[in-house]
Nucleic acid binder design. Sequence first.
DNA 1: GCCAACGTTGGC
DNA 2: GCCAACGTTGGC
Length: 145
Amino acid sequence: MQYWLFKSEPFKWSWEQQKSKGKAGEEWDGIRNYQARNNMRLMELGDRAFFYHSNEGLNVVGVAEVSALSAPDSTTDDERWDCVHIRALADMPNPVSLKDAKANPALGEMALVANTRLSVQPVKPEEWAEVCRMGGMDPDSLKPV
DNA sequence: GCCAACGTTGGC
DNA sequence: GCCAACGTTGGC
């Protein structure tokens, strides 16, 4: 299993909205960046992902999983763009802020910190574990520690 | 609201 | 293929 992080401006698409879609999940449409798209093409069913609120909030608020493989983005006819679907799995017990991530030396190379403009990014297993620890989440059960 | 960082476009 | 101009993202 691989780990990822999706950014969303909460006034456009929030974690609450994502959760309201339940198990059905929702298409992660609108991505028009090659690096982000390429990351989505690498995703497999069941891959885990952090859900991050950008612009407002600035924190990791939950964990989702890839529920459909990359396929043409329904919001455009431009065949260059495709995207996955994701579904919400669990709230982060204590949302992890960008500020705290920046202050943690173990996350110095995390894309969230080092490549701020990438909206769909890979997360290393050790980074995943560290953010879960900071957020008070058990990475296996996804329950509060 | 500003601006730095970065990606894309298009002229040459 | 270079690079200036422009657009967008996203933190502050």
